[in-house]
Amino acid sequence: MATYDGLFSALGLSDWCARGAGEGGAPMSMADLVSQSRGESGQEVSWWDTPFPSLDALHDSCDAIPQSRDLTLGLEQGFLAIEDEMSIVLDPLTQPLSVALRNALWLFTETPWWIMMPVLALLVLVVSRSVKLVGFVFFTIALLAFIDHYNYAMQTLAIIFTCAVICVILGVPIGIAMSRRNSVQKAIIPILDMLQTLPPFVYLIPLIFLFSVTEPKLYGIAIILYAIVPVIRLTDLGIRLVDKEVIEAADAFGMTPRQKLYGVQIPLALPNIMAGVNQTIMMSLAMVVIASLVSAPGLGVLVLRGIRNLELGVGLISGLGIVLLAVILDRVTKAALQRINKAQN
C-alpha cells in the first residue's frame, strides 16, 4: 500500500483513480522496476519517511495522476511533433550558416600555410597597429604548426571567426534596438539571462533533434547562442552610456535619428561594443570545445580524444593550443579596443 491511499479514499476519488488506471499506460520508470524487483511495494512506510506528495508518490496511490516521467516524456513528444514543422522553417533560414562555416573551414585549411600566416599577421597589424603583437601572433602560430596542430588550430579559428562575425551582425542591431526602447530591453534581457546561465550542454540537446549532426550549423547555432550575449548587452549599455549632453548637442544641431546613430551613438559606444566583441570571441572559443561533441572540428576534437581514450598528452597539448589561441584573440581585440579608446579620450 502506498502512503497517500488514505487521502484519495477519504476524498472519495478512488473510482476516478481506478478509472485512470486503464489509460495511464506510462512505461515503468527505473525506480519502479528496482523497487518492484526488491518486492518493496506494499510495505508499511514509517511516518519519518513520509514522501513529499510528488507526482510519483501520488501516482503510487492513484493511477489517474501522471508520473513526472510523463511530464518529460510529454515535452519530448511535443517537441517531436513540431520538429518537422520547425525544421521546415529553420532549415532554410539557417542554411547560410552552414554554407558560411563550410566555406570558412575550407578557406582556412586549404590556403597554404605560407599564405595564411602572412595574411593573419597583416590582419593583426591592421587591427592593432602593433608590430610587437604581430610578432607574438606569428610566433605562436608557428609554434602550433611546429607541433603539427596547425590544421586543428585553423579549423578552430575559422569557426570562431565565422561565429563572431555573425554574432556582431546580429547582436549589434539587437543591442541598438534595446537601447532605443525600454520595452524592447525589458523583453530581451530575460532571454539573454537565460542564454547566459543555461549550461551549454543543454542547448545542444534540442539542436541535435532539429538538425542533422553532419551539418555545421548545428554547432554554429550552439556557439552563436552562447556567445552573442555580451555583444548585445554591451552595445545596449554603450549606447545608453553616451554622454547625454553630446546627444543633446546632436539634437540641438538638428541631426536626424540616423545621423545621430551613425555619427554619434555608435562611434561613442564603440569602446563598449568592442569590449563585447572581445568577450564574444572568448566565449565562442570556450563553446567550440564543447561543440566538438557534436562534430565541430578543431582543437576541441583532440581534447575530446584525450578524454575518451585517456590520452593525457594529446589532451594537454591541445588544451595548451586553445589557451594560446585565446591569448592571441584576446590580445588582438584588446589592442584594437585600446586604439579606439586612445582616439577618443
Binding site: 553630446v246 548637442a249 562611434p267 577618443q344
Partner: peptide, 12 residues
C-alpha cells in the same frame, strides 16, 4: 544654435 555648459563636443 546652442553652446553647452560641459561643451558637448564630439570626442571622436
Amino acid at each position: 544654435s546652442m553652446v553647452f555648459q560641459k561643451f558637448a563636443l564630439l570626442p571622436h
